[in-house]
Design a protein around this nucleic acid. Structure first.
Lengths: 225, 225
DNA sequence: GCAAAAGTGTTTGGGATACACCCATGC
DNA sequence: GCATGGGTGTATCCCAAACACTTTTGC
């Protein structure tokens, strides 16, 4: 800090890594940049945070405007991820970005957002800034989160089958799990209960639908995996 | 974000939560504020982050100047903790604070730092700003970190006894552990090795000294607790 | 010899892992 | 009747937890 010059803060920006599950693929929400730098490339939805707004307020406004996704209503869950502050990460000058990670149940993007799209995390386009590494970091955090909390509920519908639950874990963790062990263990955690409903989906036995007991984020009594 | 007015970022500040172990107490480094707001009260060491400096660069400079502690050389370990951004947290105006948490081996504070002191975390003075809740959050993070990494090495001397190791865990976790189970488990993790040296300390059997195999942060094969 | 911390093993219960077949449905 | 995904149980191993006495030293 220089005492001899007046204090000038860096630019403050916010960015969101928003995941959803589509079939058996984990996807992330991106927007296409409309202007330089990185015009035409894909990037995480984000923008400037001016004085007077908290990071989450600024982010909510920006993501809604750029993608049509409403963090307050469309997301099951959001948390602060990390603050990236490498001086050179934005070619326009020193910008510090506070990033958030969230999970949404499957969303259909509104028509007003032709420049926003979900991409599978294993088939991302070229990304602007350091956003590729931010996504990798978010995915690691999400995988860790699934092992010690009920965060997976944020990726599923209110009612879901045990196979869908297992698929969600497999998509985030990136590996296959044993069906019998998975069910036995998850049911003994007492996080979910059966509902009277069933899920019919083609030429096979219908599946029981389950629901989470709690809709808020809870820490597991013993960690998963 | 207002389009009609030029972009003005909030103030950016940095703060450090630096822990050390003193006997069987976990302590945290505080400085006494020399000016308003909160003049005379204790606070985490921190200050302004101007454009051009990364948060960790700014923090290193500030902590060295205010407390004499050199983050680069005196700390075994430091990591970003969280970014606090409530608009009202600083009475002078909207300030966003990027906080860091670190562990130091027992430090003797230099003479130039009569306004810096380590306080036991269970006997803190009144704290300025929202610093009390930041310390609580940091302590939770540190406790979690000890369960799945070798971070405890940052709180101990290079060579240490198994009793000192157990005391470190007990101080951070806030509960007592069984001596035989603790030793059995920790030794099977293959993180530490015996040294030829012993520690003599009064009228009782001397203790073997151990050392960590790796000085960098590693994730445990199975989590501790 | 005595006070004080270091050091050491066994038993038991629960959860993790590995593994293969029957069930209900649509066509 | 057959293809498709839903649903279920057992045996083994390893780890967590509970628990008390002997050893080495300084005085």
């Amino acid at each position: 800090m220089k005492y001899s010059s007046p204090y000038v803060p860096p630019t403050l920006t916010v960015d969101a890594v928003i995941f959803q599950l589509h079939g058996d693929k984990l996807e992330v929400l991106l927007t296409q940049r409309e202007s330089d730098p990185f015009k035409g490339e894909w990037a995480l939805p984000g923008g400037y945070n001016a004085v007077g707004s908290t990071t989450i307020e600024a982010l909510t406004e920006i993501v809604l405007r750029k993608t049509g996704v409403d963090l307050d209503n469309d997301l099951a869950y959001i948390e602060q991820l990390y603050t990236f502050d490498t001086v050179a990460r934005d070619p326009r000058g020193h910008a510090v970005s506070v990033t958030y990670m969230g999970c949404s149940r499957a969303i259909t993007l509104g028509t007003g957002s032709q420049h926003a799209e979900f991409f599978p995390v294993d088939r991302l386009p070229n990304l602007a800034y350091d956003h590729a590494s931010i996504i990798t970091y978010a995915q690691e955090r999400l995988a860790a989160k699934l092992t010690y909390t009920n965060a997976v509920s944020g990726l599923l519908d209110k009612k879901f089958t045990l196979s869908q639950l297992q698929t969600a874990y497999e998509a985030v963790m990136g590996r296959l799990l044993d069906k019998r062990n998975f069910r036995k263990k998850f049911l003994t955690l007492n996080l979910i209960h059966e509902t009277p409903d069933t899920w019919r989906d083609g030429a096979h036995r219908p599946a029981k639908l389950y629901a989470f007991n709690s809709s808020s984020l809870e820490v597991l009594s013993r960690s998963f995996d």
